[in-house]
Design a protein around this nucleic acid. Structure first.
Lengths: 151, 151
DNA sequence: TATGACCTTGGAGTGCACTCCAAGCAAGCG
DNA sequence: CGCTTGCTTGGAGTGCACTCCAAGGTCATA
């Protein structure tokens, strides 16, 4: 239903070192779901919203994911847990699809994301400090005199 | 409209060192919104769902937040950006309201949260490594040979 | 005292990221 | 052949965390 688009080969950015299970380069949607922890629903949804490249199909129209698709999903998974909105990831995917002239924009986006991640790590370390202080209080002195806000 | 509930005094857990702006211990909802970055809508919503203690009211029924309420909101803010669901924070608030016999449960909850935070920091550092590799690629070699997945 | 900014309420609406559904096709097996 | 399992689609539904609205009361200031 869709002729396979332009295939700029070699693997994504830094050549992902770990090739996925078994030999072939062709996985069903449920295999991919098992590998990634996403549901098949979510994988199809990612495709609909433009977060995925055009996925190969079998002669009967079923999706056949490649190792490179899995690499992409790896990246998406990583970006997802930085809190990056799906819309931004779609934007990045679009830049990749648009070709080499978007290198600058992609670099920018990655740099910005990097800054976000650093900031989030700092926030979490801050929170960790607060938790540690609270936990220390509950551990000893707290039992006698600590009090919190509710009621 | 609400007689002020039991007031276990002294400040929350570890005595928060920084007293908030100006002298008094009484802030309007919009002042609190300004301090915390939350909207007044959100502050009222937090109250409705049981995430806040019973807030003092002026003689005409307007909310008057205390420094201790601000301390609580500080904690809530920190927990919020660990990704803790609001429902869990409500649970914690309930434990505090229920009194001293919930110390164990509170301690548990904080410990678990601490573990989550550590895990999330680790994930983010992992993601950071991926981003750094990708950025390095875009910085130099990438310009010639990198390729991603979409299309 | 009147104007405008601020506060109150219950309930409805929004945006995000899924998550599921119904109807239907295709492949493998006893 | 019939059955089960797995895949397909568009579209509708869900849960979370807000976010806003309408209608009305309050407060400071010119």
């Amino acid at each position: 239903m869709e002729t396979t688009g332009t295939r700029t080969d070699t693997c994504a950015g830094p050549p992902q070192p770990d090739r996925r299970p078994d030999g072939q380069d062709s996985y069903t949607i449920s295999e991919v779901a098992a590998f990634t922890g996403l549901t098949a629903h979510t994988l199809r949804w990612y495709e609909r919203i433009g977060l995925m490249p055009h996925i190969d199909r079998s002669h009967t129209g079923q999706r056949r994911y490649s190792n490179r698709d899995l690499d992409w999903l790896d990246l998406v998974g990583k970006l997802r847990l930085t809190g990056m909105p799906v819309a931004d990831m779609v934007r990045y995917a679009e830049l990749v699809r648009e070709g080499d002239h978007t290198y600058g924009a992609r670099y920018e986006l990655l740099e910005e994301t990097r800054r976000d991640v650093l900031a989030r790590i700092a926030e979490l370390q801050d929170t960790l400090a607060v938790l540690d202080r609270k936990i220390a209080f509950y551990g000893d002195a707290g039992h006698a005199l600590a009090s919190e806000r509710p009621r």
